[in-house]
Design a protein around this nucleic acid. Sequence first.
DNA 1: CCGCCCGAGGTGAGCGGTTGCTTAGAGCTA
DNA 2: TAGCTCTAAGCAACCGCTCACCTCGGGCGG
Lengths: 207, 207
Amino acid sequence: MSTAEETAGGEQQPWAEVTPDAARRLLIAAVEAFAERGYHATTTRDIAGRAGMSPAALYIHYKTKEELLHRISRIGHEKALDILRTAARREGTASERLADAVSSFVRWHAGGRTTARVVQYELDSLGPDARAEILALRRQCDAEVRGIIEDGVASGEFDVLDVKGTTLAVLSLCIDVARWFNVDGPWTPDEVGSLYADLVLRMVGVK
Amino acid sequence: MSTAEETAGGEQQPWAEVTPDAARRLLIAAVEAFAERGYHATTTRDIAGRAGMSPAALYIHYKTKEELLHRISRIGHEKALDILRTAARREGTASERLADAVSSFVRWHAGGRTTARVVQYELDSLGPDARAEILALRRQCDAEVRGIIEDGVASGEFDVLDVKGTTLAVLSLCIDVARWFNVDGPWTPDEVGSLYADLVLRMVGVK
DNA sequence: CCGCCCGAGGTGAGCGGTTGCTTAGAGCTA
DNA sequence: TAGCTCTAAGCAACCGCTCACCTCGGGCGG
């Protein structure tokens, strides 16, 4: 009951790599607080309180509040990149790989909306160095999707005028799911994933 | 040199309806600050400073910092709704009206990125009453776009499986432009507008 | 024309409260 | 004892916001 899977919507048990148990509890509390109120509106006292600790306990495991956001952001982006890379590098046609990438990427944004929100929208609360590191991961995400689209164009499956712009639009569409998706809404993450996969295939001109 | 049009990217001179000149300067300063740093990270001293005034001057024209955000959000949403309504109610085929709606809506988000960012992403920094008022405007935006898509389906121009979901995706795609668009980037607002109009027509199944 | 007042718009100083973070030390395990 | 985890208390800085006061253009009786 005090484990990690109480995050709404059945977030797959994440953060297993965050090792001292208290550090993980603090990090999960921070994710929830940042997602609800935003980084700047969240106080260190709120984070510690959600984790059932005193305000000072936070500073045993993390040097600053920003380090929490940095860790969350890095782990989240690595997960997102992993999802896209897995889809991009499996075997199958470009259409199959693109549909797979979009539907699993969207499922992650919808199902783990709490995390995705922080990862995608609190990026410029980071300092310059941390932000630069995260932006590098983000460019790798871009590259994976662009690779699939380029493959599809080369094989004649896709009909795209502007590869760079279309790549951006596809990623943008997926990412924005984290903004509007509501766990109490009419769709499950799976439904949004397959709807979006269909829409994206249309965008790249698959008949 | 101290007028309103110094906002980056040639934002069409807005906020003309904000009447005492000092109040307008404060509001423009607030838009820029909120867009750069977010609502909670922006201090009233920063807003007043950008407008060339002392911190106390803000409270002559606005009751609270939140009232500033409320005013910005309401005016911005009214402008967005106006753009969509104009496109939806002009004469022409559903395809023409949808392309018009998307390209002008996207142009607004890209060209007026500063404003659009605040309008679209700082919504839940508002209190419950103000947020409810803004959400009503947002539902009207939704309805305009859904109306065009329903027309296209009825006339046989469009081929969509899920009207509600597709409407949401189209709006989502446009709104997210405010997040990633960069005035120093490779595209002009016009170019993104027509690229997106094309992508959206594909999404609704226009040949 | 003068001197006077007035209200709108502005300021400097500062209030109470909160922030991120620190420190001294308690509790527990080994 | 030694070492790690956590807490109670609190520090300096900063927050949104207020208050007493200042400034200045214009109406107006004389």
